[in-house]
Amino acid sequence: MKVGVVTFPGSLDDVDARRAVTVAGGEPVPLWHGDHDLRGVDAVVLPGGFSYGDYLRCGAISRFSPVMTEVVAAAGTGLPVLGICNGFQILCESHLLPGALIRNDHQKFVCRDQRLRIENNRTAWTSAYDADAEVTVVLKNGEGSYVADEDTLDRLEGEGRVVARYLDVNPNGSLRDIAGITNERGNVVGLMPHPEHAVEDLTGPGTDGLGFFTSVLRSLVG
């Protein structure tokens, strides 16, 4: 199973995302932002980082990268797409997901081990988790506060599209403690925390993040 990982100028966690795919048993394929080609991959990860230095607005420039034309089109036909942190911001800017990510309410960058509840285990990226599984993964962001209007939030909740919610501490002021959401179809997921940093005991707070990557490999087989 080939999982493409896009590198934009300023992507930082692309190497980590590729490693996570490998650890999960898949084949990572590097994709370049300037290419009009997904190279036949079965799923795509938009990794974390500061693409284009977060200038103008996080994700606002990357959204116009040539590769995003292909990603948006493929997502429309059901290709699994996971946006992590900056990738989530790019998905929102691309209107593949509703809402936006704004500056943390405490105005500081925060890096911590974060507990989450997986609230929807029916998406392409969460099916390996038990319902309401509680997991610990890395969270690190400066602009990770999820916001949307009340109607949108109600709709997301009503349709079960909140994928993950913060437990114990809301680290950035996200409305309704939302850490991640999905589209109607469940193939596109945006997540502010970083599961790719929790795939090895040696270098992360455990291996709870691995499930996102094994989920997509399983959904591709299934």
């Binding site: 980590d16 925060v110 890096c111 911590r112 690190k140 040696l202 270098t203």
Partner: peptide, 14 residues
């Protein structure tokens, strides 16, 4: 202080 720094990126921090 240190929570304002990314200590995980690159995935090799032991």
């Amino acid at each position: 202080i240190t929570d304002q720094y990314d200590r995980y990126v690159q995935g090799n921090t032991v």
